[in-house]
């Protein structure tokens, strides 16, 4: 089932499973789905003890948006580990050449194919996206929004910039490395520093909670945007081919 993986443009050029197996698969999955739906109906609406808990503690969390409060105060370990997961993925795809580390983060060049529509559009769109991203970040304290949305929007701006072709990002530059880790670093630092006042990691003192959450969110926004742009960058460039010699073949001289 997993041995005949194919890559290619036309998805029909593939070794499909025999019809009998497909039918059995459909029946099995349909049965599983029906069982789940029946369980859902029998179970009925679940009790939600967390609703009252979130509502009663919201005043102490430092923010007014309950989702932000859950993400960065009540369950901040989740978000901390999530930023760590993003960093691990970034480490996995970052181009592994150290000889570029002396070059600048952003380099400017004239693209071979210019898209004038995109260029003219970007001149208006980029500042608007950056401002909207900042707004989403700031408003995340009270209204829907927050670090992830702002970071994703900022990353969209970066990808558009890449597509226009005038700018290239070099993620081996020290500034880029800093951007990639600043979110996790600030999160960890703040989480550790609050031990001094509250005795527990990531338990912010109530008076400072709003400010600390905003600091973490700003750093996390930058990191999320940088990592998402890096992911796009890594997919765009051709991976190096020279380093792999292929499976060793027995050669007789």
């Amino acid at each position: 089932m997993f041995n005949d993986l194919t890559l290619g443009r036309n998805t029909q050029q593939q070794a499909s499973l025999p019809a009998g197996v497909l039918i059995m698969l459909v029946l099995a999955i349909a049965a599983a789905c029906l069982f789940l739906i029946k369980a859902l109906i029998d179970f009925g609406p679940a009790e939600q003890p967390l609703v009252a808990l979130v509502a009663s503690n919201l005043a102490q969390s430092g923010v007014d948006n309950p989702v932000t409060a859950v993400l960065l105060n009540f369950r901040s370990y989740d978000t901390l580990l999530e930023v760590a997961v993003l960093l691990i993925v970034a480490l996995a795809v970052v181009p592994a050449s150290t000889d570029q580390s002396k070059l600048r983060f952003i380099s400017v060049s004239v693209p071979t194919e210019r898209s004038f529509v995109l260029e003219a559009f970007l001149r208006w769109l980029l500042p608007a996206i950056v401002v909207t991203s900042g707004y989403l970040l700031w408003t995340g304290a009270a209204l829907p929004g927050g670090a992830f949305q702002a970071g994703a929007l900022l990353a969209g701006a970066g990808i558009l910039l890449l597509l226009a072709g005038h700018h290239n990002f070099n993620f081996n530059a020290p500034a880029a490395r800093l951007l990639l880790v600043v979110g996790l670093a600030v999160f960890l630092l703040v989480g550790a520093a609050v031990i001094l006042s509250s005795g527990t990691a990531l338990a912010y003192p109530q008076a400072w909670a709003g400010m600390l959450i905003l600091i973490i969110e700003v750093a996390a926004t930058l990191t999320i945007a940088a990592i998402l742009v890096l992911l796009f960058c890594a997919l765009q460039v051709e991976p190096p081919r020279a380093k792999y010699e292929g499976p060793k073949k027995e050669e007789h001289s």
């Binding site: 929004g145 992830f148 998402l228």
Partner: peptide, 16 residues
């Protein structure tokens, strides 16, 4: 919140 994130990440960035 989830809607904003899905529009930006789930539809936009994943597609890119």
């Amino acid at each position: 919140d989830v809607a904003i994130a899905e529009a930006a990440i789930g539809a936009g960035l994943t597609g890119a």
